[in-house]
């Protein structure tokens, strides 16, 4: 028993070290609760939702965050879903903001709460191609609020257009820069295409 207690203490100490914290951390507090079906789905409610994810970080393959305005685990190695840090990645944030379904044949309209850990079936390239029942491509010059610009590696949603012709884009950008609203010129960049979500109600 004494050995058990001694090793228990050692284990707790190890778990607090950087190495042990490198994986499986934030996601342990996320959940798998069912989304709520909504009949209404407005662009400004989507602005509210995406805006609240600002400062909550970036996680490759992620889709779970809280609302404390702090990235609990910044600067994880990129491209590693196993780091299980806080935040969505670019396509995960878009999927949840656009209230999509994990079934690509369905329209969705599912309200996913922040701590519901879901990324969705689409990566940036799939969004760019307009894949999935709720999604479609749009001419970039017509893209408006809560439409998006997607390349083969990234997607960001239009928060609003801007005076000098660029756009304020809400996006999960990278581990170092997190999730925020940045001024971007994706609209005129030929690496990016315009994409939208069907079914906005206002």
């Amino acid at each position: 028993m004494r050995r058990f207690v001694a090793m228990l203490v050692l284990g707790l100490a190890l778990s607090a070290s950087t190495g042990a914290q490198a994986y499986h951390r934030f996601w342990a507090g996320c959940n798998t609760e069912a989304p709520t079906f909504m009949t209404t789905m407005t662009r400004d409610a989507a602005q509210d939702y995406a805006n609240a994810a600002r400062y909550e970080g970036y996680q490759w393959g992620g889709g779970c965050w809280n609302y404390d305005d702090v990235d609990s685990y910044p600067n994880d190695p990129p491209s590693e879903v196993g780091t299980h840090g806080e935040g969505g990645d670019c396509s995960g944030l878009t999927f949840k903001t656009w209230r999509e379904s994990t079934d690509t044949t369905r329209d969705g309209r599912y309200y996913w709460r922040a701590l519901r850990n879901v990324h969705g079936p689409y990566d940036a390239a799939a969004f760019r191609a307009g894949s999935g029942a709720p999604n479609h491509t749009v001419a970039k010059s017509t893209a408006g609020v809560m439409d998006a610009f997607a390349s083969n590696t990234h997607i960001g949603m239009v928060f609003t257009r801007s005076l000098y012709g660029g756009d304020q884009i809400v996006e999960a950008k990278c581990e170092a820069c997190g999730t925020n609203i940045f001024y971007r010129t994706y609209r005129s960049d030929s690496a990016y295409g315009g994409v939208g979500r069907w079914g906005w109600t206002g």
Binding site: L8, G11, S15
Partner: peptide, 9 residues
């Protein structure tokens, strides 16, 4: 003990 400690931590 060490397993329980790491998991719990």
């Amino acid at each position: 003990g060490i397993t329980a400690g790491v998991i719990g931590g």
